[in-house]
């Protein structure tokens, strides 16, 4: 009998612990955060390296939109491939050829940051986005890091960068003096995203 009392005394706390753990691992009790969104235009540039030359192409027509809700942050950016200027019209026309611009007029980036919460106060923070880049008709994953400065009015000043590969998009690497450019391409950019009312945005 004493043995069973001891077992009961030990068993109930264990049972209680099991139930408690199960409750903690359940869905978050937090209510869904109010959706907020931002949009703006910025610049994006690519840097490709050739053993004899480094080329930088800049577009000032990059459109970016972002939505943050209880699930996290969703970002989408796009730029017309024709808008990139490397300072050499011949090279830019060649770029349009290799990215098959007629069929794929836009380079598109979609990014997700799960669990992201919008800071309550102005300040700077970093965001890592699991992303997908769509270029030349081929989508490829990328990991993008962005530095965001949240302004007092809720707007975001964003700087972002990531490394990518031309081969990920089945792009035939252009050659200069018969030597191809390197496969690695660096992407970076910046934008000012204005906070917009998510409800109005959804209606539009």
């Amino acid at each position: 009998m004493k043995r069973w009392i001891a077992v009961l005394a030990l068993g109930f706390p264990l049972l209680a612990l099991g139930e408690d753990e199960a409750a903690q691992s359940g869905p978050p009790s937090a209510e869904p955060a109010e959706a907020r969104s931002w949009q703006g235009v910025g610049t994006v540039e690519y840097v490709v390296v050739h053993p004899l030359h480094t080329v930088t192409g800049i577009s000032r027509q990059a459109e970016i939109r972002a939505v943050a809700d209880g699930a996290g942050l969703k970002v989408m950016g796009r730029a017309p491939v024709r808008s990139f200027d490397s300072g050499n019209a011949n090279r830019d026309a060649h770029m349009l050829e290799v990215v098959r611009a007629a069929q794929n007029p836009l380079v598109i980036l979609r990014g997700l940051a799960r669990g992201f919460r919008v800071p309550a106060a102005p300040g700077s923070f970093d965001v890592q986005l699991e992303s997908e880049v769509q270029l030349a008709g081929v989508a490829a994953p990328a990991r993008l890091s962005a530095q965001v400065e949240q302004l007092p009015n809720g707007d975001w000043k964003v700087r972002f960068a990531f490394d990518h590969r031309l081969s990920a998009h089945s792009i035939e690497r252009p050659k200069l003096l018969l030597v191809p450019v390197e496969d690695a391409v660096s992407i970076r950019g910046e934008a000012l995203l204005e906070a917009v009312d998510a409800k109005n945005d959804a209606k539009n």
């Binding site: 459109e63 989408m76 794929n104 007029p105 598109i108 979609r110």
Partner: peptide
């Protein structure tokens, strides 16, 4: 990543 925040379709030609 099948979402479109621009809502105007960014499909290939």
């Amino acid at each position: 990543f099948d979402f479109d925040l621009f809502g105007d379709g960014t499909k290939r030609s």
